[in-house]
Amino acid sequence: MNMSTSTAGSKRKRRRGITDRQLKYLFLMPCILLLAFLIMYPLIWSAYLSFTDYRAIQGRFRLFPGLVEEKPGIKQIKPNFVGFQNYKRILRDGYIWEHYRTTGRFVIVSVAAQSLIGLGLALLFNREFRGKGIITTLILAPMMLSPVVVGMFWNYMLEPNWGVIDYLLNAIFKLPKIEWLSNPNTALLGVIIADTWMWSPFMFLFCLAGITAIPKYLYEAAEVNKASGWFRFSHITFPLMWPLMLIAIIFRTMDAFKLFDIGWGMTQGGPGYSSQTISMLLFRDAFMSSKTGISCAFAYIMLIMIVALSNIYIRYLLRARER
């Protein structure tokens, strides 16, 4: 009896051909292979290059020469292994730390401005009024644009000779021409203004979602208890929407830390170094100076910093949720 049951079972198994578990892995495999190739391979390869003095413009470097048939005329080079020299050089270079300070200033001011504007707009839009839908859509429009286009666009608007911003400031407030992007003291501010214009809607969206999710009965209870507007904001609205806003702040901080496109389109980091962030410096070293090895080391330092920064936020977010 037992024998026949087990034979029948194995026949069923055979008929099915493949177990659910195997099928699961089979479906996952292309994705895993693709991710392994597209993410893990460049990560491992760039980590290796960060310990060498490789310069991509000087020739082709194959870890296993002869494995792939090379075209005639290809110059092969073998970079030197330099240990932690690239990392040491970056960490000891005061010039690079100036760019970190610029990046820090940019992150703090732009994320703070975007958070405040986004929160303010969300509070204003947390009520019903005519045309709310269309106005909300218009407010969200800047973040749908390409950052390079936004950079170019603000470049023209802040231009002192024919830009609309200086024209309006002069017409309304009789202010003299401000050379926004050609003055070392105002160039970073110009980039911050453009970035804030583009990304405040993102904060607005998250804040509005957070406010909308707050149960109405809390406000009703506060009203019954004659709570002031400030009390309602500080004890109900802000604490309950804060975790969602914090997620938006994490995204924006990570993104602002990597600022490149808007800033590059507007100032290319100038005048001097006044608006040059670390991403711009990395671009210059990697693609303009072709310092591949040192750029890989620099990119790893940046990656570690962003991961560390994000971890601090995430821990805070988890604590906020527990509360």
């Binding site: 413009i57 070392p184 001097g272 006044s274 303009m288």
Partner: peptide, 19 residues
């Protein structure tokens, strides 16, 4: 290229008064 990039930045920094 390695000579040019810092040259552009530092000469511009000097004429704009950033340095």
């Amino acid at each position: 290229n390695e000579l040019l990039v810092p040259s552009e930045e530092l000469l511009n920094a000097a004429v704009t008064g950033d340095m």
